[in-house]
Nucleic acid binder design. Structure first.
Length: 945
RNA sequence: GGGCGGUUGGCUCAGUUGGUUAGAGCGCUACGUUGACAUCGUAGAGGUCAUAGGUUCGACUCCUAUACCGCCCACCA
């Protein structure tokens, strides 16, 4: 993609990301390469609402989905990611209404047709903003298949679905108590009500008793407790528990309703909680679900006292026309005046508010359309139970079942203007005609005087069809046949009920198949302080586009992928994004280094035969192939964060810090064959690692890969693919796994670290080359082959560096141990005997601790019950530690001897010996984690005393 | 009232079939302009894995309680 082999010093994502996206899209890489013999991999995008701009919830799903999509594309699956957006009925209507209100325009003044037109205008404007933002994140969706829930095709699907359910009598119309939003003046579903604990009041109100025939009681009142005094206007009874002794005598008598003077019966019902309030409850069937049930049992009148905007209606007597809260205030004052208000208590209570507009929901009697949910839920429950649909992480199964098993019928009609109109027509006689195409006459009586239901459908009704409606359903299109069912449904756990459950129900109902085999649920992104990201609480970094601008889409993606576990919430830490940005730069510079060393004038050969490889080469290739296997496994296990982190570790620590550093000796040397070999390994490893990382960080990997490819153009080893996005996913080559090479190179790393550590501790100038003698025992010959590497990495003086099977420790030398190998650094004049003694004593103490622990362990049940390899490992370590302890003791003794000769005093010696406080386990340098195995790390790292 | 998740170095978080020395990034300390990278390098400090029990040869990992934080569901007026 770059025209020049020249690469600037620092990676500049801004010049790269948008250009690459356009290039990919132009070349059609986002479109699946259909192959009838292959099983496709398909994701339906969770369609963003057209209400506004991208937020981190979008960034989250786009990142994970794009990762999966790119990964599968590279694995050769025909891969399709269907993009689109959601008309989001109530949410969008709300937003547009508010925008219009700012211009002083009211929805009702515009009228339905004009208002809907304005919403379409809005959609035209904001729909494209969203899609632009999706592109900025790098999402490789197939834009040629983009859909919108309110487009013609999907509207037809909605219509078909409705009619089918209607015909199966799974949709019905009825008058029930529904959740009513007085601001939107519409019914909403149970799910759209958000409950929260709020501080309210509990009002104790006296209801005067009507005179009884016998007049046996001297009670004058029955006192009830209520949180909503205004509903007194709709009371049709007072209820007590049948076994409540306090009220037993009153059952059957009449009370006089305050404010209105209506006579209402005192009834007994099990639903009454004796302990709550006074044990007597007012019953308002039209405005409370529990009361509604009581009313049904006792055939009480249902008195609706509210208008659709929550003002009191004509049934409210003097309070008619007042807002519900004004009426409440007035009523309480009136009760007080009349001596009917006993007292008021503070009362924490759960208040339901409209998810979209925050208005307090009112239970209201209303005629609405419902979906009978049980017949749909049953197979959907079974699908998850039998594993036909798998939810990741698994714990959400329980939540899913719990919800599905307790579902109430779904209220699907909305008194809104923006959405799919309910496809039912009524004639003057009230006959219903439900039809796939607009009817001209009543299906029952033939009347031509028919009109369509004014209401629209819940926006989630259409979302539930999304996986198949976007592929052409109800038509048997090629896409539907080939790509359905889709593969993975990836989304936030917050819409498990709203969307996922409904898709499963609808998919089974309409296509007979679960719409996807796996549901992957991610967590939510929160602010750094843990608070929920919301418009009312904006903080820096809330807008993904700002983050992309500051750090790149790659950095944001890497951060999202690696900073969360499936289903767990995470906080977006901008410092983490910054370090991911640095990672991209690191990749850039790794590439820069490799390319400048490839030397295009000579051919870069394909991967050399393993037998010709040097230790570092074999080590690196072994590590690389472990990585390939690990990443693939992690991704298969949905552990995207683990996989991506592993690539980071490999690239930065093993590849850059060790291999590339070591490679400089070959690259700058005179051995032409070694040079070529090293170049090949460098190019190969970078190529493979970039492939692995591409799904996570698509831009920087494609860009650098293109540079690499260009640099190899003349060579046999050139890549066959044109673009990384469609390059083949690497396969681990078992033949390149080389345990011995890993062990040997780890030993070398350990020696280097030991020397570096000593240099730092004894303040040797960083640039200074120092002499060294290594007593390597049986490893001497092998180690000697690594002379140059050791000289380079430990900055040794090549002329004063010997590797022998055994060697005498020179006087005035520092003695280090790395495993069984001893390293002498003759740093004349630099050694503080006391300090060195303390260091050795500290090490000895630590090793002694390790030995003691292992001995205890091996003496017990452990050696008989633990697996053999674990036991053997412990034995090996013990043996090594014993040898090591012996050497340390000898070294220490040597120093003490000298001290005694120098009359330094036994006191000090004793102090050093008796104060071997067990040091903390020495932390291994993180960057070597992958090569931990056989070497005793603690050997090289000492403890400071 | 049920159910779920979290509690790991100063901060933010990983840790997937229990294996003995628990990891990262940032921050911190010391040093460093060795031609890939200061968006960097080298070395280092820092954790009784919330608490209490239990299972096991062995527990951050499994079980039971407890505490605190957060979330979901539910018609207690």
């Amino acid at each position: 993609m770059s025209d020049s082999i020249e690469m600037p010093k620092a990676y500049d994502p801004h010049s790269v990301e948008e250009r690459l996206y356009e290039w990919w899209e132009e070349r059609g890489y986002f479109q699946p390469r259909i192959d009838p013999k292959k099983k496709p991999f398909v994701i339906s995008i969770p369609p963003p609402n057209i209400t506004g701009e991208l937020h981190h919830g979008h960034a989250m799903f786009l990142t994970f989905e794009d990762l999966m999509i790119r990964w599968h594309r590279m694995m050769g699956d025909p891969t399709l990611w269907v993009p689109g957006s959601d008309h989001a009925g109530i949410a969008t209507q709300n937003v547009v209404e508010k925008a219009l209100e700012k211009q002083g325009i009211k929805r009702r003044d515009l009228g339905r047709a004009e208002f809907v037109k304005r919403v379409w205008d809005w959609k035209a404007e904001y729909g494209s903003i969203i899609t632009h933002q999706i592109r900025r994140l790098g999402a490789s969706t197939d834009w040629t298949r983009e859909r919108f829930t309110l487009d013609a095709g999907l509207s037809r699907a909605v219509r078909e679905a409705f009619v089918r359910l209607y015909e199966r009598k799974l949709i019905y119309r009825g008058t029930y108590l529904v959740n009513w939003c007085p601001r939107d003046e519409s019914a909403i579903s149970d799910l759209e009500v958000e409950h929260a604990e709020e501080n309210g009041k509990l009002y104790y109100v006296r209801y005067r008793l009507a005179p009884a025939d016998g007049a046996s009681s001297n009670l004058q009142f029955i006192t009830v407790a209520t949180t909503r005094p205004e509903t007194i206007l709709g009371d049709s009874a007072v209820a007590v528990h049948p076994r409540d002794k306090r009220y037993k005598k009153l059952i059957g008598r009449m009370a006089i309703l305050p404010a209105l003077g209506r006579r209402i019966p005192i009834i007994a019902d099990d639903a009454v909680e004796m302990e709550f309030g006074t044990g007597a409850v007012k019953v308002t069937p039209a405005h409370d679900p529990t009361d509604y049930a009581i009313g049904e049992r006792h055939a009480l009148p249902i008195i609706n006292i509210m208008n659709k905007n929550a003002t009191i209606n004509e049934n409210g007597g003097a309070y008619a026309g007042m807002d519900r809260y004004a009426a409440r205030k007035q009523l309480v004052e009136d009760l007080q005046r009349d001596g009917l208000l006993d007292h008021i208590e503070d009362h924490a209570m759960s208040i339901g508010r409209c998810q979209r507009c925050d208005a307090v929901i009112e239970p209201l009697l209303s005629t609405q359309w419902f979906v009978k949910i049980k017949p749909l839920a049953k197979p959907a429950i079974a699908a998850v139970k039998t594993g036909r649909v798998k939810i990741v992480p698994e714990r959400f199964n329980k939540i899913y079942f719990n919800w599905m098993n307790n579902l109430r019928d779904w209220c699907i009609s909305r008194q809104l203007w923006w959405g799919h109109r309910i496809p039912v027509w009524y004639c003057e006689q009230g006959h219903e005609t439900c039809a796939r195409t607009d009817p001209t006459q009543c299906a029952v009586c033939g009347s031509t005087n028919i009109r369509q239901d004014e209401d629209v459908l819940d926006t989630w009704f259409s979302s539930g069809l999304w996986p198949f409606s976007t592929l052409g359903w109800p038509d048997e299109t090629e896409d539907l046949k080939y790509f359905y069912p889709t593969s993975v449904l990836e989304t936030g756990y917050d819409i498990l009920f709203f969307w996922v459950a409904r898709m499963i129900m609808d998919g089974l109902e309409f296509t007979g198949k679960p719409p996807f085999h796996t549901v992957y649920l991610h967590g939510l992104i929160r602010h750094k302080d843990g608070s929920k990201i919301s418009k009312s609480n904006p903080q820096p970094g809330d807008n993904p586009l700002d983050v992309i601008r500051d750090f790149s889409a790659d950095a944001l993606r890497y951060t999202i992928v690696t900073s969360s576990a499936p289903g767990n919430d995470t906080k977006l830490d901008l410092e983490k994004v910054e370090s991911a940005r640095n990672f991209a730069n690191k990749i850039w510079n790794i590439t820069r280094f490799i390319i400048t060393n490839l030397d295009v004038t000579t051919s870069t050969p394909t991967l050399p035969h393993p037998d010709t490889l040097a230790l570092a080469d074999r080590w690196l290739l072994s590590r690389l192939n472990h990585l390939i296997a690990a990443v693939t496994k992690h991704y298969n296990d949905w552990q995207f964060g683990e996989g991506s982190r592993a690539i980071y570790e490999f690239l930065w620590s093993e590849f850059a810090d060790w291999y590339i550093e070591a490679a400089k000796s070959a690259l700058n040397g005179t051995d032409a064959a070694a040079k070529q070999r090293t170049r090949a390994i460098l190019a190969h490893t970078l190529d493979q690692a970039l492939r692995l990382l591409h799904p996570t960080m698509p831009f920087v990997t494609e860009e650098t890969w293109q540079h690499l490819r260009k640099a190899q153009t003349e060579d046999e080893g050139r890549k066959t693919e044109d673009a990384l996005i469609v390059a083949e996913w690497p396969q681990a080559d078992k033949k390149l796994i080389d345990a011995r090479a890993e062990k040997e190179f780890a030993a070398l790393m350990d020696i280097v670290r030991a020397i570096r550590n000593a240099r730092a501790e004894f303040n040797v100038e960083p640039g200074k080359r120092i002499p060294a003698i290594i007593a390597a025992g049986s490893a001497a010959k092998r180690l000697d082959a690594q002379r140059d590497t050791l000289v380079l990495l430990a900055r040794l003086d090549a002329n004063e560096f010997r590797i022998e099977p055994r060697a005498e420790k020179p006087a005035q030398a520092l003695a280090l141990m790395s495993g069984k190998i001893e390293i002498y650094l003759p740093l004349a004049g630099m050694i503080d005997v006391a300090k060195e003694k303390a260091r050795l004593a500290g090490e000895l103490a630590k090793v002694g601790g390790d030995i003691a622990r292992a001995e205890t362990l091996l003496a017990g049940e452990f050696s008989r019950r633990a697996p053999k390899d674990v036991v053997q490992k412990t034995r090996d370590t013990l043996a090594a530690n014993r040898a090591r302890a012996a050497r340390l003791a000898a070294q220490l003794a040597g120093l003490e001897g000298r001290e005694i000769r120098n009359a330094q005093g036994a006191k000090e010696t004793k102090a050093a010996k008796t104060k071997p406080r067990a040091k903390k386990p020495i932390q291994r340098n993180a960057k070597t984690r992958a090569t931990k195995k056989p070497i005793s790390k603690g050997a090289a790292k000492k403890s400071r005393s």
